[in-house]
Design a protein around this nucleic acid. Structure first.
Lengths: 338, 338
DNA sequence: CTGTTAGCGCGTTCAG
DNA sequence: CTGAACGCGCTAACAG
């Protein structure tokens, strides 16, 4: 075996050089649009290039230039349409600059995330976009070697040395409570997310803020926590609906858990909004297929990914300066479930 | 600028060698668990490794070994939950073998797909998994240089020199027609997919097969084509529902178009299944949140991705032999929309 | 404007 | 069992 030839990669730059009777350096120059190569030679090289069907070896180039034109992206789960859309935005945005993402799912496991960061760095990614499971920026800083730029996406961590872009859901969640109160609801429940995540904390804060502004008491049993999955969302919903007296409205912290909530409601034969009003999160298409169409907290998810990618590209272009913390605005979209 | 130092990458293998007073070759050997290095030296090296916080440079290693431990994956669109799930399966399966996918969206554009294949190959991917937009395997063969193994996913191309895994939807689509007929439907429509895609062709074939077996005529106006997107699915559905007399059932070729279909039905105030029965494709969670829950053609999508990855890993492990063509089975899941 | 030289960091011969 | 030397393919110095 030994050096085997796991697929002979086609002609190298030296083959072209020989064929065109020039030096490898000259070929490299025309390849990179460098300097001003004599038109005659340039044409000759170009001809040899297509004659031999050359295409560059990105790995060798990366070793030399110390950049791979790849970006590590870690999200909890691509199956969550929220992240699927953000990822699509990242891909679209990076692509125009010639970068490609390397995608990892952490399933909200810090250990896996840090292991993935290490693996990504070893693969030589030029930067990182993280929808991190970490609670503190310091945990991330600790495992990012080599001064690679990092952008936090969909997370808002205090004292972070990294650029970040996140969505303000606190305000619309507060508005959601106020809206519900206006509709005559008094026992408003919150199907909350995992509190290690900043987005989940902000929604809970918005919920409490709304109650306070409405002069309603904060009733702990009316808050149940899920881990942002459908199944746990359903389980937590059961708990909520078991309260006596039962809630007359539920505000849900993410789109997967909304699915579980609706399932639990349907199983009990409860009517929306008559028995219980529902406010979901993320303006996913199916929320409008449901009867009644769901009132939702709509987040600009595509823009979230787009901004994250842009922030990172700026750093990759060498931009320096203090970390930038960008906030996008979610808004309450009132439909018929309230 | 020039050679700048886009992040000094930390210690190299030679730094470790110096620190441990051995040669780089020896360090390389312990790193790769090679041969039998003298225990004393080995320990010494190990100590230096952690003392200096060494981690290997994957790019350099790749240049040397000619493998990057990456796999190119091209799908139409990650926003389609069908592909999101397949991708998740691919990631999970590749990860245990130390491979990472490089993901591209083609949006069903052959030109983009082929450009992406070239870019992926230039980046040195060890293999490719394609949910290709190509109609013939030869188009793909033409743009895959360097004998890299390719697996076709969710596509069934005749005379293909590549391994492939796809789902038989023809049988369950035929069954769907039969089921509908049994329920008393006679004007059964098909919201079909783009016929350049094998999956769409198979579903149409199943539809016609069912009609034939039921002794029903094939009525061309009862077939409308969409491009697998929600919006075109809605537009094509409008056409279908405008037929006179109108269809009393619709079989839809993918999950995104199902969304459009339901939207069109709702807009006209039609009742499901009373006015029109509906059979969707893919057992996505929301199909069960709808009232009534949707009868669907359920595909083993996770397994689809898993098999594709496994097929590729086998080739990467050096397995030779003729192309393997694997078929998975979809099944009709009868719920209440029929 | 062009060719020569010298590595990037690593794995693997080949001597010893 | 170990070290010296070489080269993967490419780019960037430096001369000419």
């Amino acid at each position: 075996m030994s050096d085997g030839n796991p697929s002979r990669s086609g002609p190298t730059i030296r083959d072209i050089a020989r064929h065109a009777r020039v030096s490898a350096a000259t070929v490299s120059r025309v390849l990179n649009g460098h300097d001003t190569v004599h038109p005659n030679l340039r044409d000759q090289v170009l001809r040899s290039l297509s004659a031999l069907g050359y295409y560059p070896n990105g790995v060798a180039r990366s070793l030399r230039t110390r950049q791979t034109q790849t970006v590590g992206v870690i999200i909890p789960d691509i199956l969550n349409p929220h992240f699927a859309e953000a990822v699509r935005a990242i891909q679209d945005t990076l692509a125009v600059a010639g970068y490609t993402p390397l995608l990892c799912n952490s399933d909200r496991d810090r250990g896996r995330e840090f292991a993935d960061v290490a693996a990504l760095l070893a693969r030589g990614v030029d930067g990182l976009i993280l929808a991190s499971a970490a609670e503190h920026a310091s945990e991330i800083a600790a495992c990012v070697r080599g001064h690679r730029p990092v952008v936090l996406m969909d997370r808002n961590l205090p004292d972070s040395p990294f650029d970040s872009v996140s969505v303000d859901c606190q305000t619309p969640t507060r508005d959601a409570v106020l809206h519900l109160v206006e509709r005559g609801r008094r026992r408003i429940a919150h199907l909350a997310g995992p509190q290690e995540t900043s987005t989940a904390r902000e929604k809970l804060a918005g919920y409490r803020e709304g109650l306070e502004q409405a002069g309603l008491p904060f009733d702990p049993p009316l808050v149940c926590f899920g881990d942002y999955t459908t199944s746990q969302g359903e389980a937590a919903s059961e708990l909520l609906l078991d309260r006596r007296p039962p809630p007359d409205a539920v505000i849900c912290a993410n789109n997967l858990m909304s699915q579980g909530l609706l399932r639990a409601i349907a199983r009990r034969g409860l009517a929306v909004p008559t028995d219980v009003a529902v406010i979901a999160t993320d303006d996913v298409y199916w929320t409008v297929l449901i009867d009644p169409p769901l009132t939702v907290i709509a987040q600009p998810v595509y823009e979230l990914g787009q901004r994250a990618a842009t922030l990172l590209l700026d750093r990759l272009r060498g931009e320096s300066g203090p970390p930038r913390c960008m906030r996008l605005q979610a808004r309450l979209l009132i439909r018929e479930s309230t």
